[in-house]
């Protein structure tokens, strides 16, 4: 475990905590895309099929449980909680997210490292994670005025992806036994690029100390 990987995992964890904090304390999910949250829950469910069959480390298992638990509880809050669900921007969150799932599944069936159920599901989760933020970015673009916690949530998610790329480069040079997962690298790079535009406006808003507002 290197510092970039740990920092990446921690920003990922913080993004989830920021989101849960917003939902749990303010009792609002305004500005949060349910579509993106559904995709993330699917990403974790497909990727962590090995959670009870393969043991890597206590850290690994605990983090997987946290990501699975938090993503499904966010879904529960947004769909079932009687106060939170009323703040959901249903009319704005119209991205057809199901149309992302099928192409990712087909791509995983065609391009994978090994044609087994678990391996295809893992690859599917990598492809789907790369595009899962799209409904959220579209929702931000529509609402334009982004509240602090929502802005921080997306910023932390983007930071997590960026740090993972640095982690792969580090591992490539530092670990002799490390094998390059091209599928992960290319998907991860694409995923990080999706945040570039948002990052530009986010950093500017922090620098100028003004509320984050995306251009029309």
């Amino acid at each position: 475990m290197n510092i970039f990987r740990l920092a990446g995992d921690m920003t990922h964890l913080m993004s989830v905590l920021v989101l849960l904090l917003k939902i749990h304390t303010i009792k609002s999910c305004a500005g949060i895309s349910l579509k993106t949250q559904e995709l993330y829950a699917l990403v974790f469910a497909a990727r962590y099929l090995d959670i009870f069959t393969h043991y890597y480390s206590l850290y690994n298992t605990v983090m997987k449980l946290i990501f699975l638990g938090s993503s499904f509880s966010i879904l529960w809050y947004m769909k079932r909680h009687k106060v939170v669900r009323r703040s959901y921007d249903k009319d704005q969150d119209t991205f057809r997210h199901h149309f992302l799932v099928l192409p990712c599944l087909v791509l995983a069936l065609l391009i994978n490292e090994k044609f087994t159920f678990k391996e295809v599901m893992w690859t599917f989760s990598i492809y789907l994670e790369a595009v899962a933020i799209l409904p959220q970015l579209v929702l931000l673009q529509r609402t334009r005025n982004v509240d602090n916690l929502t802005g921080q949530y997306v910023f932390l998610l983007g930071a997590y992806r960026g740090l993972y790329i640095i982690n792969w480069i580090y591992r490539y040079f530092a670990e002799p036994t490390y094998s390059t997962h091209w599928i992960t690298w290319i998907s991860g790079l694409l995923q990080t690029l999706l945040y570039a535009d948002f990052f530009y406006y986010y950093i500017n808003s922090v620098k100028n100390n003004v509320r984050l507002q995306l251009p029309a």
Partner: peptide
């Protein structure tokens, strides 16, 4: 070694 076995990242 089989690289598909090493899934130590989250």
């Amino acid at each position: 070694h089989d690289k598909t076995k090493i899934k130590d990242e989250l």
